[in-house]
Amino acid sequence: MTEVTAEYKTVKSEEVKVWHKAASVDAFPTDGGAAIEYKGLQVAIFNFSRRGEWYASQNLCPHKKQMILSRGMLGSEGQEPKVACPFHKKTFSLKTGVNLNGSECDLATYPVKVEEGYVYVGFSQ
């Protein structure tokens, strides 16, 4: 399983080749996240129910390379939805992956869709 930041690359929705069926909707706590594994990658999926939105990003926090973001806290800064890492509270935009309160590397983000009670994450391979 990879802890190498470089192996996590943002997938844009037009680049999706595989929609991976991750888990059923109720596996994801409301206004919270859970991690999945896919081909050696750890991806955090967030159920931002307050906003009625779903997001996915690498589970790896770039700060101290911890597999933890799925346990982070959701919130917003202005309009931007964000997640705060449990370890040192670095916050990242769920839309762009940008570190909002520092200069850590961006998170890779992935498209998410929900169909018939299941959550799917988009990968390019």
């Binding site: 888990a23 859970a34 999945i36 594994e37």
Partner: peptide, 16 residues
């Protein structure tokens, strides 16, 4: 049920 690392597999976090 909340106390798992992954929701799509039983394995624990292999990076630990």
């Amino acid at each position: 049920k909340r106390f798992t690392h992954f929701v799509n597999t039983e394995i624990p976090d292999p990076t630990m």
